[in-house]
Design a protein around this nucleic acid. Structure first.
Length: 235
DNA sequence: TTGATTGTTACCGG
DNA sequence: TCCGGTAACAATCA
């Protein structure tokens, strides 16, 4: 936070997103790097906003709106060199036009780790979180414990395309929605009606029980019937 | 009041 | 070099 004063009265001239990392470019060649992590939140207020409430790390003030950023995982100032280093360690972002899916495929195809773990590794593919991991793999009929090297190019391409589509919808509706035919944002509440198997007990496709287990220290769900595990001999 | 959780990184050891 | 495990940190909700 010691650098925050450097941005006083500065104008934000560009905003970039690399996966879940946000970069606000200022006319002073400085970048504000924000990662919201698990708990970070943007809270908008009409301008002029009153005194910040709670643990506000950054306030971005415009003529009409003011946005307070609470509880980000990362909140720091970077110069161009720092931005280059950050970009170098983030894998291709499915939502970016300049993303290179070949790079993601090579990293997956050369890894003994499971696809469930690899999808959570931001240096492999950026932007996919825990809910999208479960939902994408279910939609593509891939078991989370399939080794990366067992995934063929066609399966990867299907996964990449579905991720592009789902994440774009997520941006459009500002909500994680992975069920088909939900073109509008549902009302407030939890995700139960927005997802297929995450946090569910039954598979909507075959009605079999959903298996919950831990992968990369996070809960993952799978339908053992719709997402059969690869024969260990295949790897 | 407590536990779970839409995430990431550093560090250590095998 | 790769990978697994652990710890740290953040805020909110049921």
């Amino acid at each position: 936070m010691q650098g925050a004063a450097l941005l006083n009265e500065r104008r934000c001239v560009s905003i970039e997103a690399f996966g879940k990392h946000l970069l606000y470019g200022f006319d002073s060649a400085l970048w504000l790097h924000i990662h919201l992590g698990l708990f970070g939140r943007f809270r908008p207020h009409p301008s002029p906003a009153s005194i910040p409430m709670g643990a506000v790390r950054v306030r971005l003030e415009g003529p009409a709106k003011t946005v307070d950023i609470h509880g980000p995982n990362t909140c720091e100032l970077l110069d161009s060199d720092g931005v280059d280093k950050l970009c170098a360690r983030i894998g291709p972002d499915v939502l970016r036009a300049d993303a290179d899916p070949d790079l993601a495929f090579r990293r997956i195809a050369n890894s003994r780790s499971t696809i469930g773990q690899l999808l959570m590794d931001q240096s492999v593919i950026a932007g996919i979180g825990n809910i999208y991991r479960t939902e994408l793999l279910w939609r593509c009929r891939i078991h989370p414990q399939t080794p990366g090297r067992a995934l063929d190019r066609a399966a990867f391409d299907a996964l990449w395309c579905d991720a592009q589509m789902l994440l774009a919808e997520g941006v459009r509706l500002n909500a994680i929605i992975t069920v088909d035919q939900m073109m509008v944002k549902p009302g407030r509440g939890r995700y139960r009606e927005r997802v297929n198997i995450f946090g569910k007990e039954r598979c909507p496709h075959c009605e079999n029980a959903i298996h919950k287990f831990s992968l990369s220290k996070r809960s993952v769900y799978a339908c053992e019937s719709c997402q059969p595990q690869a024969d260990p001999g295949d790897t």
